[in-house]
Design a protein around this nucleic acid. Structure first.
Lengths: 173, 173
DNA sequence: GAACACGGCTAACGTCGTTAGCCATATGAC
DNA sequence: GTCATATGGCTAACGACGTTAGCCGTGTTC
Protein backbone atom coordinates (compact mmCIF):
# COMPACT_ATOMS: atom_id res chain seq x y z
CA UNK A 1 0.00 0.00 0.00
CA UNK A 2 3.03 2.26 0.47
CA UNK A 3 4.23 4.44 -2.36
CA UNK A 4 5.38 1.96 -4.97
CA UNK A 5 7.46 4.63 -6.66
CA UNK A 6 9.69 4.82 -3.59
CA UNK A 7 10.16 1.05 -3.75
CA UNK A 8 11.20 1.32 -7.37
CA UNK A 9 13.76 4.01 -6.63
CA UNK A 10 15.05 2.01 -3.67
CA UNK A 11 15.51 -1.06 -5.85
CA UNK A 12 17.30 1.03 -8.46
CA UNK A 13 19.56 2.49 -5.79
CA UNK A 14 20.49 -0.93 -4.51
CA UNK A 15 21.30 -2.13 -8.03
CA UNK A 16 23.33 1.00 -8.65
CA UNK A 17 25.34 0.70 -5.44
CA UNK A 18 26.03 -3.00 -5.67
CA UNK A 19 26.41 -3.60 -9.42
CA UNK A 20 26.98 -0.21 -11.03
CA UNK A 21 25.25 1.82 -13.70
CA UNK A 22 24.78 -0.91 -16.35
CA UNK A 23 22.80 -3.01 -13.86
CA UNK A 24 20.16 -0.34 -13.47
CA UNK A 25 17.73 -1.50 -16.14
CA UNK A 26 13.96 -1.47 -15.98
CA UNK A 27 13.89 -5.25 -16.13
CA UNK A 28 16.38 -5.66 -13.26
CA UNK A 29 14.51 -3.13 -11.14
CA UNK A 30 11.24 -4.93 -11.75
CA UNK A 31 12.83 -8.29 -11.02
CA UNK A 32 13.99 -7.00 -7.65
CA UNK A 33 10.37 -6.10 -6.85
CA UNK A 34 9.00 -9.43 -8.10
CA UNK A 35 7.14 -7.87 -11.02
CA UNK A 36 7.73 -7.34 -14.76
CA UNK A 37 9.28 -4.31 -16.38
CA UNK A 38 6.16 -2.93 -18.10
CA UNK A 39 4.38 -2.76 -14.74
CA UNK A 40 6.86 -0.11 -13.62
CA UNK A 41 5.22 2.28 -16.05
CA UNK A 42 2.06 2.21 -13.96
CA UNK A 43 4.01 4.16 -11.37
CA UNK A 44 6.37 6.40 -13.33
CA UNK A 45 6.54 7.80 -16.85
CA UNK A 46 10.02 6.63 -17.84
CA UNK A 47 13.50 5.66 -16.69
CA UNK A 48 14.53 9.29 -16.51
CA UNK A 49 12.26 9.66 -13.52
CA UNK A 50 14.29 7.02 -11.67
CA UNK A 51 17.52 8.73 -12.62
CA UNK A 52 16.25 12.07 -11.40
CA UNK A 53 15.29 10.50 -8.08
CA UNK A 54 18.78 9.00 -7.73
CA UNK A 55 20.35 12.34 -8.57
CA UNK A 56 18.26 13.93 -5.86
CA UNK A 57 19.47 11.32 -3.39
CA UNK A 58 23.06 11.97 -4.43
CA UNK A 59 22.91 15.72 -4.05
CA UNK A 60 21.01 15.52 -0.78
CA UNK A 61 23.38 13.00 0.79
CA UNK A 62 26.36 14.97 -0.43
CA UNK A 63 24.90 18.11 1.11
CA UNK A 64 24.41 16.35 4.43
CA UNK A 65 27.98 15.04 4.38
CA UNK A 66 29.39 18.48 3.67
CA UNK A 67 27.18 20.20 6.24
CA UNK A 68 28.33 17.72 8.87
CA UNK A 69 31.99 18.44 8.22
CA UNK A 70 31.29 22.14 8.07
CA UNK A 71 29.72 22.02 11.51
CA UNK A 72 32.78 20.32 12.97
CA UNK A 73 35.42 22.27 11.04
CA UNK A 74 33.95 25.63 9.99
CA UNK A 75 35.97 27.38 7.31
CA UNK A 76 38.28 24.41 6.78
CA UNK A 77 38.51 24.06 3.00
CA UNK A 78 40.71 20.97 3.07
CA UNK A 79 38.38 19.17 5.45
CA UNK A 80 35.48 19.99 3.16
CA UNK A 81 37.36 18.81 0.10
CA UNK A 82 38.31 15.55 1.74
CA UNK A 83 34.68 15.00 2.71
CA UNK A 84 33.73 15.61 -0.91
CA UNK A 85 36.25 13.02 -2.01
CA UNK A 86 35.20 10.57 0.67
CA UNK A 87 31.59 10.81 -0.41
CA UNK A 88 32.38 10.31 -4.09
CA UNK A 89 34.74 7.40 -3.52
CA UNK A 90 32.28 5.86 -1.08
CA UNK A 91 29.41 6.22 -3.57
CA UNK A 92 31.15 6.00 -6.94
CA UNK A 93 28.19 4.88 -9.03
CA UNK A 94 25.82 7.32 -7.40
CA UNK A 95 28.26 10.16 -7.94
CA UNK A 96 28.71 9.26 -11.57
CA UNK A 97 24.98 9.28 -12.25
CA UNK A 98 24.84 13.02 -11.61
CA UNK A 99 26.98 13.75 -14.63
CA UNK A 100 24.12 15.06 -16.73
CA UNK A 101 21.75 16.71 -14.30
CA UNK A 102 18.00 16.71 -14.95
CA UNK A 103 17.90 20.23 -13.62
CA UNK A 104 14.28 21.03 -14.46
CA UNK A 105 13.04 17.85 -12.80
CA UNK A 106 15.12 18.19 -9.63
CA UNK A 107 13.45 19.46 -6.45
CA UNK A 108 14.00 23.17 -5.97
CA UNK A 109 17.12 24.05 -4.00
CA UNK A 110 18.78 20.64 -3.92
CA UNK A 111 21.69 21.68 -6.10
CA UNK A 112 21.97 24.96 -4.21
CA UNK A 113 22.10 23.23 -0.83
CA UNK A 114 24.98 20.97 -1.85
CA UNK A 115 26.93 23.98 -3.09
CA UNK A 116 26.47 26.18 -0.02
CA UNK A 117 29.05 24.73 2.39
CA UNK A 118 31.78 25.19 -0.20
CA UNK A 119 30.65 28.72 -0.98
CA UNK A 120 30.73 29.59 2.72
CA UNK A 121 34.19 28.08 3.12
CA UNK A 122 35.61 30.44 0.50
CA UNK A 123 34.06 33.50 2.07
CA UNK A 124 31.09 33.74 -0.25
CA UNK A 125 33.10 34.42 -3.40
CA UNK A 126 31.13 32.72 -6.16
CA UNK A 127 34.01 32.71 -8.65
CA UNK A 128 36.42 31.10 -6.21
CA UNK A 129 33.73 28.61 -5.22
CA UNK A 130 33.30 27.56 -8.84
CA UNK A 131 37.04 27.13 -9.29
CA UNK A 132 37.31 25.03 -6.13
CA UNK A 133 34.29 22.98 -7.11
CA UNK A 134 35.83 22.31 -10.52
CA UNK A 135 39.06 21.24 -8.87
CA UNK A 136 37.28 18.87 -6.49
CA UNK A 137 34.99 17.51 -9.18
CA UNK A 138 37.94 17.05 -11.50
CA UNK A 139 39.99 15.20 -8.90
CA UNK A 140 37.05 12.95 -8.13
CA UNK A 141 36.05 12.01 -11.67
CA UNK A 142 39.66 11.46 -12.70
CA UNK A 143 40.05 9.15 -9.72
CA UNK A 144 36.77 7.32 -10.30
CA UNK A 145 37.48 6.93 -14.01
CA UNK A 146 40.99 5.64 -13.36
CA UNK A 147 42.59 8.45 -15.28
CA UNK A 148 45.48 8.93 -12.87
CA UNK A 149 48.44 6.62 -13.33
CA UNK A 150 48.64 3.79 -10.81
CA UNK A 151 50.42 4.88 -7.67
CA UNK A 152 49.78 8.60 -8.18
CA UNK A 153 49.90 10.51 -4.90
CA UNK A 154 46.40 11.91 -4.88
CA UNK A 155 46.50 13.03 -1.26
CA UNK A 156 49.26 15.46 -2.13
CA UNK A 157 47.45 16.74 -5.19
CA UNK A 158 44.36 17.40 -3.08
CA UNK A 159 46.41 19.20 -0.46
CA UNK A 160 48.23 21.34 -3.03
CA UNK A 161 44.96 22.37 -4.65
CA UNK A 162 43.26 23.21 -1.40
CA UNK A 163 46.22 25.23 -0.18
CA UNK A 164 46.38 27.14 -3.44
CA UNK A 165 42.76 28.15 -3.16
CA UNK A 166 43.02 28.84 0.57
CA UNK A 167 45.79 31.34 -0.24
CA UNK A 168 43.42 32.96 -2.73
CA UNK A 169 40.80 33.46 -0.06
CA UNK A 170 43.19 34.70 2.66
CA UNK A 171 46.30 36.00 0.87
CA UNK A 172 48.09 36.77 4.11
CA UNK A 173 47.64 33.43 5.87
CA UNK B 1 42.07 -0.50 -51.57
CA UNK B 2 43.02 1.91 -48.77
CA UNK B 3 42.83 0.75 -45.18
CA UNK B 4 39.12 0.24 -44.59
CA UNK B 5 39.61 0.51 -40.85
CA UNK B 6 40.64 4.13 -41.26
CA UNK B 7 37.48 4.79 -43.25
CA UNK B 8 35.43 3.30 -40.46
CA UNK B 9 37.08 5.45 -37.83
CA UNK B 10 36.68 8.52 -40.03
CA UNK B 11 32.97 7.82 -40.44
CA UNK B 12 32.64 7.37 -36.70
CA UNK B 13 34.46 10.63 -36.08
CA UNK B 14 32.16 12.49 -38.41
CA UNK B 15 29.09 11.06 -36.72
CA UNK B 16 30.54 11.91 -33.33
CA UNK B 17 31.36 15.50 -34.24
CA UNK B 18 28.12 16.27 -36.01
CA UNK B 19 25.54 14.30 -34.05
CA UNK B 20 27.11 13.37 -30.73
CA UNK B 21 27.85 10.15 -28.89
CA UNK B 22 24.48 8.39 -29.32
CA UNK B 23 24.80 8.65 -33.12
CA UNK B 24 27.97 6.58 -33.13
CA UNK B 25 26.43 3.13 -33.65
CA UNK B 26 27.76 0.31 -35.77
CA UNK B 27 24.73 0.58 -38.05
CA UNK B 28 25.13 4.31 -38.58
CA UNK B 29 28.86 3.96 -39.25
CA UNK B 30 28.19 1.23 -41.80
CA UNK B 31 25.43 3.27 -43.41
CA UNK B 32 27.86 6.15 -43.93
CA UNK B 33 30.17 3.74 -45.79
CA UNK B 34 27.36 2.25 -47.87
CA UNK B 35 27.63 -1.19 -46.26
CA UNK B 36 25.84 -3.15 -43.50
CA UNK B 37 26.84 -3.25 -39.88
CA UNK B 38 28.03 -6.88 -39.74
CA UNK B 39 30.53 -6.17 -42.51
CA UNK B 40 32.38 -3.84 -40.15
CA UNK B 41 33.49 -6.88 -38.19
CA UNK B 42 35.57 -7.99 -41.14
CA UNK B 43 37.85 -5.06 -40.35
CA UNK B 44 37.79 -4.70 -36.57
CA UNK B 45 36.96 -6.92 -33.61
CA UNK B 46 34.38 -4.74 -31.87
CA UNK B 47 33.08 -1.23 -31.24
CA UNK B 48 35.65 -0.69 -28.51
CA UNK B 49 38.30 -0.61 -31.22
CA UNK B 50 36.57 2.39 -32.81
CA UNK B 51 36.32 4.11 -29.45
CA UNK B 52 39.99 3.56 -28.77
CA UNK B 53 40.86 5.06 -32.16
CA UNK B 54 38.74 8.12 -31.38
CA UNK B 55 40.37 8.47 -27.98
CA UNK B 56 43.75 8.37 -29.66
CA UNK B 57 42.65 11.14 -32.03
CA UNK B 58 41.42 13.20 -29.10
CA UNK B 59 44.59 12.90 -27.06
CA UNK B 60 46.82 13.53 -30.07
CA UNK B 61 44.93 16.59 -31.25
CA UNK B 62 44.82 17.93 -27.70
CA UNK B 63 48.56 17.42 -27.41
CA UNK B 64 49.14 19.31 -30.66
CA UNK B 65 46.94 22.19 -29.51
CA UNK B 66 48.77 22.46 -26.19
CA UNK B 67 52.20 22.17 -27.78
CA UNK B 68 51.33 24.97 -30.18
CA UNK B 69 50.33 27.31 -27.38
CA UNK B 70 53.37 26.27 -25.39
CA UNK B 71 55.63 27.24 -28.25
CA UNK B 72 54.09 30.70 -28.47
CA UNK B 73 53.71 31.33 -24.74
CA UNK B 74 56.22 29.18 -22.87
CA UNK B 75 55.49 28.87 -19.17
CA UNK B 76 52.14 30.65 -19.46
CA UNK B 77 49.76 28.51 -17.40
CA UNK B 78 46.69 30.59 -18.16
CA UNK B 79 47.32 30.45 -21.91
CA UNK B 80 47.68 26.69 -21.68
CA UNK B 81 44.50 26.36 -19.65
CA UNK B 82 42.54 28.48 -22.09
CA UNK B 83 43.82 26.33 -24.95
CA UNK B 84 42.66 23.28 -23.04
CA UNK B 85 39.24 24.81 -22.66
CA UNK B 86 39.11 25.93 -26.28
CA UNK B 87 39.91 22.43 -27.47
CA UNK B 88 37.28 20.81 -25.26
CA UNK B 89 34.54 23.28 -26.10
CA UNK B 90 35.45 23.06 -29.78
CA UNK B 91 35.33 19.24 -29.70
CA UNK B 92 32.79 18.52 -26.98
CA UNK B 93 31.77 15.03 -28.07
CA UNK B 94 35.31 13.95 -28.79
CA UNK B 95 36.44 15.22 -25.39
CA UNK B 96 33.62 13.40 -23.65
CA UNK B 97 34.49 10.09 -25.28
CA UNK B 98 37.79 9.97 -23.38
CA UNK B 99 36.02 9.67 -20.06
CA UNK B 100 36.85 6.02 -19.60
CA UNK B 101 40.22 5.51 -21.26
CA UNK B 102 41.09 2.19 -22.90
CA UNK B 103 44.58 2.58 -21.54
CA UNK B 104 45.93 -0.83 -22.52
CA UNK B 105 44.77 -0.42 -26.12
CA UNK B 106 46.07 3.13 -26.57
CA UNK B 107 49.31 3.70 -28.50
CA UNK B 108 52.26 4.02 -26.16
CA UNK B 109 52.98 7.58 -25.05
CA UNK B 110 49.83 9.27 -26.31
CA UNK B 111 48.51 10.04 -22.85
CA UNK B 112 51.96 11.10 -21.73
CA UNK B 113 52.42 13.50 -24.65
CA UNK B 114 49.16 15.33 -23.92
CA UNK B 115 50.20 15.74 -20.29
CA UNK B 116 53.70 17.06 -20.92
CA UNK B 117 53.04 20.73 -21.78
CA UNK B 118 51.12 21.18 -18.54
CA UNK B 119 53.80 19.43 -16.54
CA UNK B 120 56.45 21.70 -18.03
CA UNK B 121 54.35 24.80 -17.33
CA UNK B 122 54.30 24.00 -13.60
CA UNK B 123 58.03 23.45 -13.44
CA UNK B 124 57.94 19.68 -13.57
CA UNK B 125 56.12 19.20 -10.29
CA UNK B 126 53.94 16.15 -10.83
CA UNK B 127 51.67 16.83 -7.87
CA UNK B 128 50.95 20.38 -8.94
CA UNK B 129 50.42 19.20 -12.51
CA UNK B 130 47.80 16.71 -11.35
CA UNK B 131 46.00 19.37 -9.34
CA UNK B 132 45.98 21.78 -12.28
CA UNK B 133 44.85 19.05 -14.63
CA UNK B 134 42.00 18.20 -12.29
CA UNK B 135 41.01 21.85 -12.14
CA UNK B 136 41.01 22.20 -15.93
CA UNK B 137 39.25 18.89 -16.49
CA UNK B 138 36.69 19.79 -13.86
CA UNK B 139 36.01 23.20 -15.38
CA UNK B 140 35.63 21.64 -18.80
CA UNK B 141 33.32 18.77 -17.91
CA UNK B 142 31.15 20.97 -15.73
CA UNK B 143 30.83 23.39 -18.64
CA UNK B 144 30.18 20.66 -21.21
CA UNK B 145 27.66 18.95 -18.97
CA UNK B 146 25.85 22.22 -18.26
CA UNK B 147 26.46 21.97 -14.56
CA UNK B 148 27.20 25.66 -14.05
CA UNK B 149 24.18 27.91 -13.62
CA UNK B 150 23.30 29.94 -16.70
CA UNK B 151 25.26 33.16 -16.85
CA UNK B 152 28.06 31.96 -14.58
CA UNK B 153 31.28 33.88 -15.20
CA UNK B 154 33.53 31.02 -16.23
CA UNK B 155 36.31 33.24 -17.53
CA UNK B 156 36.82 34.58 -14.04
CA UNK B 157 36.75 31.11 -12.48
CA UNK B 158 39.43 29.96 -14.94
CA UNK B 159 41.57 32.99 -14.19
CA UNK B 160 41.24 32.57 -10.42
CA UNK B 161 42.21 28.92 -10.63
CA UNK B 162 45.19 29.53 -12.86
CA UNK B 163 46.45 32.37 -10.70
CA UNK B 164 46.11 30.28 -7.58
CA UNK B 165 48.24 27.51 -9.08
CA UNK B 166 50.68 29.96 -10.62
CA UNK B 167 51.30 31.32 -7.11
CA UNK B 168 51.97 27.78 -5.96
CA UNK B 169 54.65 27.36 -8.59
CA UNK B 170 56.31 30.77 -8.05
CA UNK B 171 55.33 31.93 -4.54
CA UNK B 172 57.08 35.26 -4.94
CA UNK B 173 55.60 36.43 -8.21
C1' DG C 1 41.95 -23.97 -63.72
C1' DA C 2 41.66 -24.71 -58.73
C1' DA C 3 42.17 -23.12 -54.07
C1' DC C 4 41.61 -19.65 -51.18
C1' DA C 5 41.30 -15.10 -48.85
C1' DC C 6 38.67 -10.98 -48.87
C1' DG C 7 34.72 -8.46 -48.03
C1' DG C 8 30.29 -7.97 -48.88
C1' DC C 9 25.42 -9.93 -47.54
C1' DT C 10 20.96 -11.81 -44.75
C1' DA C 11 19.08 -13.79 -40.72
C1' DA C 12 19.14 -14.02 -36.18
C1' DC C 13 20.15 -13.72 -30.99
C1' DG C 14 19.78 -11.47 -26.68
C1' DT C 15 19.86 -6.99 -24.68
C1' DC C 16 17.60 -2.41 -23.97
C1' DG C 17 13.43 1.17 -23.11
C1' DT C 18 8.87 1.37 -24.07
C1' DT C 19 3.81 0.71 -25.76
C1' DA C 20 -0.61 -1.66 -26.45
C1' DG C 21 -3.91 -4.11 -24.70
C1' DC C 22 -5.82 -7.69 -21.53
C1' DC C 23 -7.47 -9.03 -16.96
C1' DA C 24 -8.04 -9.75 -11.80
C1' DT C 25 -8.90 -7.46 -7.75
C1' DA C 26 -10.26 -3.77 -4.69
C1' DT C 27 -12.97 0.23 -3.90
C1' DG C 28 -16.83 3.26 -3.80
C1' DA C 29 -21.68 4.62 -5.21
C1' DC C 30 -26.22 3.62 -5.35
C1' DG D 1 -25.73 -6.46 -3.09
C1' DT D 2 -24.56 -5.11 -7.43
C1' DC D 3 -22.24 -2.54 -10.69
C1' DA D 4 -18.63 0.98 -12.40
C1' DT D 5 -14.29 2.22 -12.10
C1' DA D 6 -9.53 2.70 -10.80
C1' DT D 7 -5.40 0.13 -9.67
C1' DG D 8 -1.73 -2.61 -10.83
C1' DG D 9 -0.40 -6.68 -12.42
C1' DC D 10 0.43 -9.46 -17.01
C1' DT D 11 2.00 -11.01 -22.11
C1' DA D 12 3.32 -9.77 -26.66
C1' DA D 13 5.58 -6.91 -29.34
C1' DC D 14 8.30 -2.93 -31.55
C1' DG D 15 12.42 -0.73 -32.90
C1' DA D 16 16.85 0.22 -31.45
C1' DC D 17 21.51 -1.74 -29.91
C1' DG D 18 26.15 -4.87 -30.41
C1' DT D 19 27.31 -9.02 -32.22
C1' DT D 20 27.56 -13.91 -34.40
C1' DA D 21 26.81 -17.49 -37.89
C1' DG D 22 26.92 -18.68 -42.21
C1' DC D 23 26.41 -17.80 -47.27
C1' DC D 24 28.37 -16.07 -51.62
C1' DG D 25 30.66 -13.41 -55.37
C1' DT D 26 35.11 -11.66 -56.69
C1' DG D 27 40.00 -11.33 -57.22
C1' DT D 28 44.50 -13.24 -56.44
C1' DT D 29 47.86 -16.91 -56.43
C1' DC D 30 49.94 -21.08 -57.39
Amino acid sequence: MADRTADIVAAARELLDTEGVPAVTMRRIAEKLGIRAPSLYKHLPDKGHVETALQTQCLTELAVALETVEADHPGDLLALALAYRRFAVGNPHLYRITRVIHRDALPEGVEYRAAMPLLRAVGGNMDVARAVWAFAHGMVVLELDDRFPPGADLDTAWRIGCEAFARTVTPGG
